[in-house]
Every structure is written in C-alpha cells, then in structure tokens.
C-alpha cells in the first residue's frame, strides 16, 4: 500500500499516510460493529459513537509514541482507545461488560483504562480529567521519562472551571502536556456558538501564554502535524500546548438521541461534506496512494477483525458477581495486621 512518491502530502511520509488511513478506517468499522450490536441489545448502558472524530483521533494517535500517555476525554472515546493500541477484542469485551475486558467489566464504554499502554481512563463527569493529566505530566517531568501526556476534552467540557485550573497548573509548571479540545459544535444539544460565543476555543490558552492552535480536525494530516509539533515542544521542555480540533459529530450525542435540535438538512450536509473517512479515502485514492481495490480489501480485513472481536465478547464470561467487591482498596493497608511498628 505504500507508494514511492507522495505528491499530495508533502510533509508527511507515505508510511504515516498509511497509518492515518488505517486508524481512521479501524475506528469507523469498529463503531459500525458497536452500532449493530447496540441495536441488537448486546451492549449494556448507552454508547457514544465516534463518527466524525476519526481523523482527530487518528492524527493524535499516530503522532504519539507508545510510551506517551493519553488521558482520554470528551464523549467520543472508542477511537481514542483504538489509536492507543488497545486490541479490538479487549475494547469490545469491556463494552459488553465481560470479565475479559481490560477492567473486568467495571469500566465499560466510558471508563476503559490500561496502565500498561499508558491509557488513563475517562472522567465521565466531563472536564474532570485535565488535572489528573497535568499530574501525569508532572510525573513525566519529575521522573525525566521523556514521555508526553495528551489530554482530550469536548467543547462542552471547556466551560468547567477544572479545565481552566488544569491550564493554570500546566502553564505554571511548564508541564509536558498537550490539551486537545475536540470541538464538534455541540455540547449534547447546545451549540458551542450559543454556549460561549467566541470564535476559537483555543483562545482559552492565550491569557496564560500557552501556544494555541485551531485546526481542521477532519483532516488527519493537519491533526498529525500540529500534534506532532506540540509533542516535540513538550518533549523538549517547551511546556504545554492547547489545540482546538474542529470536527463534525455525524451522529447523535448518544445512540437514540433524536437530535431535535438539529435540522435534517444540516445533518445531511455535515455527513456529505465533512465525513473525514470518505474525504480522506477519496483523497488518498485520487493521489494514487492506494487503489480503490486495496482500500476495499483493507476495509474487509478490518471488518473481519471487528467480527472476531464481537464473537470474542459474546463468548466471554460475565464477571463473577463477587468481583464487584474487589479493587475498592488495595489490601492489606500499610502496616495492617502488623501492629505499631
């Protein structure tokens, strides 16, 4: 699939284009699988799908090194788990609430965490993950690991004071952290423009002199380039960056959201014009980077992997009820059972 020449992506090498494309397709096909299973009633609770955020997730995922941390936020999470390298089987099992999920079914769709892959779980009380991300970055700085922390949030979450507090700490301590606002224009139903009425959410970094960028988050190359630059700055001791990644939410906030706040026409236009997966697909085929046949083969291959993950989740056992009582605290507590020492 790698082409020798790469005329339309001057600054990005061909392998990177491959990776971006593959990650985007992986996210979309995985989410289509989740949608089918959710419709069938196999996935408990509620799901928030990533349709429209694929380029943003792929761009940041490919820009990261495996040891960099991702503290996931916003509501579109599955794609972030995927780009951090968590296998489909494991993500699907956690979504199904099964014992074989990385968190044994205690986390689910919103709370997948994998410390070995440096994936910090989501604060589903939106906007509460940014201070822990600052702390993770402080740990990298003090321990001199050379790793960087990426932390994502939606547009809605930026109205929380905790988000702004995190920017203050990151700036004050010059932390190696990249804050990414995935602005899809809606905090559930309330449009960003109505909420805050400013042109760019990246402006929130300005009073603190945090380098801030507003980019087209439906272009994976743009996301990759901007986040790569921010990661390099952080890794070299240049401190935090704030990036607004402007994306489109192609489906409702959650599955079942009737989207009465959105006109049908507007939703249709979004889907046609700003679907990052079809746009990038056309772009790479047009550029001769990949043939239509090879693209279809890639989709088929990923669909097989999704199908296998669904089967794995279905075949996996439920967690033993008694495990609900495990992991509340690490026992024994310090010194417990040993008396005064």
């Amino acid at each position: 699939m790698v082409s020798d020449t790469n005329p339309h992506f001057e600054d990005v090498d061909a392998e990177t284009v491959d990776e971006l494309l593959e990650q985007m397709v992986r996210i979309r096909r995985f989410e289509e699988g989740v949608l089918d299973e959710f419709s069938e009633g196999s996935v408990p609770g509620f799901v928030h799908l990533c349709h429209g955020h694929e380029a943003s997730h792929a761009g940041m995922g490919v820009a990261m090194q495996p040891d960099d941390w991702l503290a996931v936020g916003g509501s579109r999470l599955h794609g972030q788990y995927i780009v951090k390298g968590v296998p489909f089987d494991e993500i699907m099992a956690e979504l199904f609430g099964k014992a074989t999920g990385p968190n044994g079914g205690k986390g689910g769709s919103m709370h997948l965490a994998d410390v070995d892959r440096h994936l910090y779980g989501h604060a589903a009380t939106i906007g509460s993950g940014q201070n822990p991300a600052a702390g993770l970055a402080l740990a990298q700085q003090m321990r001199e690991t050379g790793n960087v922390v990426l932390s994502t949030i939606g547009d809605g979450g930026t109205s929380r004071g905790s988000f702004h507090t995190a920017l203050v700490f990151a700036a004050a301590w010059n932390l190696p952290v990249v804050y990414i606002i995935e602005n899809n224009g809606f905090a559930i139903s309330y449009s960003t423009q109505q909420q805050v009425g400013i042109d760019s959410l990246a402006d929130y970094g300005k009073p603190l002199n945090i380098p801030s960028y507003s980019i087209d988050g439906s272009d994976p190359v743009a996301v990759y380039e901007t986040i790569s630059e921010a990661i390099t700055r952080a890794r070299e001791g240049g401190g935090p960056t704030l990036v607004e990644s402007r994306v489109t939410r192609l489906r409702g906030h959650f599955e079942g959201d009737k989207q009465a706040y959105r006109t049908e026409e507007e939703a249709r236009e979004s889907n046609a014009e700003r679907d990052p997966v079809t746009n990038f697909q056309e772009r790479v085929i047009e550029a001769g980077h990949i043939t239509a046949e090879a693209y279809d083969a890639l989709v088929d291959e990923i669909d097989d992997e999704v199908g296998a993950a669904i089967q794995f989740a279905k075949d996996s056992p439920d967690p033993a009820p008694s495990t609900a009582y495990e992991d509340v605290l690490r026992l024994p507590l310090y010194g417990q059972g040993e008396g005064d020492a």
Partner: peptide, 22 residues
Amino acid sequence: RDTPLSEIGIVGHALGASIGGL
C-alpha cells in the same frame, strides 16, 4: 512545591501524578 490557589488542581493533579509513579 507551592501551587496556584485551587484545590481542584492540588488534589486533581496529585491523582494523575500518583498514577504516573510518584
């Protein structure tokens, strides 16, 4: 380390720092 005046930041960052190995 002295911190900015925000308990959200003081204990919130500490959570992340502890997970990060401190």
